[in-house]
Amino acid sequence: MIEFKDVSLVYPNGTEGLKKINTTIKDGEFVVIVGLSGAGKSTFIRSINRLVTPTSGSLQVDGEDILNYRSGNLRKLRTKVGMIFQNYNLVKRSNVLKNVLAGRLGHTGTLRSILNLYKKEDISLAYESLKRVNIDEKIYNRADELSGGQQQRVSIARVLTQKPKYILADEPVASLDPPTSHQVMTYLKKINKEDNITTIVNLHFIDMAMEYADRIIGMRAGEVVFDGPVSEVSEKTFEEIYGRSIREDDLRGGADES
């Protein structure tokens, strides 16, 4: 369970990333955070694994306040919170398997990982993860030889290999075309249901949020302006979140093609 209590974040340049956020994310939920760019979606998500550190309030993950965590604790927190990025963030010159094995870094000693001495079960776990996202035939390809969609699937496999309790996805489909976007979201949803991994996804496409989310959190200017199950959401809700009428480019489309 993730609990935000009066969480605020002010960046060193004075920008307010988050303003007094109060919300609770229950285990197993598939939450989509929507909002315009600059609304604080990324800051929200990155606070949970402390890639950014909120400046006040308390943020509890599984009942422990993570805001005063230091390196050792932080590593432990990050092993149970996997993350997927907009730009996939793979090591382009390394092969797919090695990229996926990087998901085990938090569980592997420094020396073992530097010498590539991964445990047998870690390697088979990595392979299984690649199989689950249907990219096991590319195992020895260099990451930069793959298409965008394939790279994002590899990064999902990396997170799976991590065996996380939570998955954070920061705009996972923003760099992909519509069919591939739906494919990636389908995998995320499937993993959420099958492994019961709490998943929090940042999106700015309204139709995708409606299609995949259990619950939607709307953000504007660092504040939560909507929070509720997807059944309560209508086009009007989005207009309120965005503070303007809905446009063509707020929709990804292409749901039928995939």
Binding site: L105, G106, S113, I114
Partner: peptide
């Protein structure tokens, strides 16, 4: 970016440097 990803998956400084 890859360095950030390694850090996010719980790698320590040496692992981040070595892997990313």
């Amino acid at each position: 970016n890859p360095l950030e990803a390694m850090r996010a998956s719980g790698g320590n400084v040496y692992q981040v440097i070595w892997y990313a």
